[in-house]
Design a protein around this nucleic acid. Structure first.
Length: 301
DNA sequence: GCGTAAATAT
DNA sequence: CATATTTACG
């Protein structure tokens, strides 16, 4: 069953179908949000001001918060809130734990870039538009780099002879797919790629054509790749780190939380939710890791 | 400040 | 071991 889908996917014919399925199978933010909240310790939640369900940020299927290309969202709040009560963690000069780019966050990233246009899609601008607290220019820059590589790879593929229709055997035969590209592809694959990036100008600023085609995301069937299919590693889940993958010390605010920044392994808790597929990666002789699969963000503007 | 490359951590 | 993220350098 799954194989069939993959084969068709390779042909690039059922894009909509798989995409639609994706959305359907995707865990609703609602499902994940509450879950994450539960995981969040009350103490921490209070510190962040998110102890209670945020009225302004808890849309069931929300598409994308309002990232107006003109004004910034008030997500960025000053650290004044915590000034009083029992939580005084210097958010400055503290090393930040790894940031986990969750589909939701990535979606926002893409959205920001789309509105800005490749031309203005610079780390700083993107970061500002995203208005995600805790997000720094470095984070965006790094992600942007990967994003670019992802798009670049797409161009090459669609432009070059591909076809290969036969995915026989393996799937993606040719393809000097760097590890980074593959990974990026994975993450970005399930995300909406603003056509603006591929060949159109964006609203607001005159842009030149950047890419040309938006090829369906081809997921290499490599065993390792499969593992990548799982957005989170066996223990790379943001659980250990909290929601934003940020440790308590150094946290300021989390608009991100409301955004559904992190996505806990719902699959682990809800086996009933069968996403794309949980792939068991068998590295070699006994290396077995199970990963959760969740990705894409819903829709595009 | 942005882009790219390499290093480190998970 | 591979991948993701972080950090340093150009």
């Amino acid at each position: 069953m799954v194989e069939d889908e993959e084969h068709r996917r390779m042909r690039g014919e059922v894009e909509h179908n798989w995409f639609a399925r994706w959305e359907e199978e995707l865990p609703s933010p609602e499902e994940l949000m509450p879950l994450s909240q539960s995981l969040i310790t009350p103490d921490l939640a209070v510190a962040f001001d998110i102890s209670s369900p945020n009225p302004s940020a808890a849309p069931p299927h929300t598409q994308l918060p309002p990232p107006p290309p003109e004004f910034e969202s008030p997500d960025l709040s000053a650290p004044s809130g915590a000034g009083s009560a029992g939580n005084e963690e210097p958010a400055r000069t503290l090393k930040r734990p790894r940031l986990v780019w969750t589909p939701q966050l990535h979606k926002r990233f893409v959205d920001a870039v789309a509105h800005l246009g490749i031309k203005n899609a610079v780390p700083k601008t993107i970061m500002q538009l995203m208005s995600v607290d805790g997000l720094t220019r470095e984070n965006v820059a790094s992600h942007l780099q990967k994003y670019r590589l992802y798009l670049k790879r797409m161009q090459g593929l669609s432009s070059s002879a591909v076809a290969g229709g036969s995915g026989a055997g393996g799937g993606v035969p040719p393809g000097p797919i760097s590890a980074v590209d593959a990974a990026t592809e994975q993450l970005f694959a399930g995300n909406p790629i603003p056509h603006s990036f591929l060949s159109r100008s964006v609203p607001g600023t005159g842009q030149e054509p950047f890419l040309q085609f938006m090829a369906p995301s081809l997921l290499p069937h490599h065993p390792q790749m499969a593992a990548a299919t799982a957005y989170y590693h066996q223990r790379q889940i943001g659980f250990d780190h909290g929601f934003l993958a940020m440790e308590p010390p150094g946290l300021q605010r989390m608009g991100a939380t409301s955004l559904g920044l992190i996505q806990p392994p719902a699959a682990a808790a809800h086996p009933a939710n069968s996403y794309g597929d949980n792939i068991n990666l068998s590295s070699r002789g006994g290396g077995e890791k199970r990963v959760l699969t969740l990705f894409p963000t819903g829709s595009e503007d």
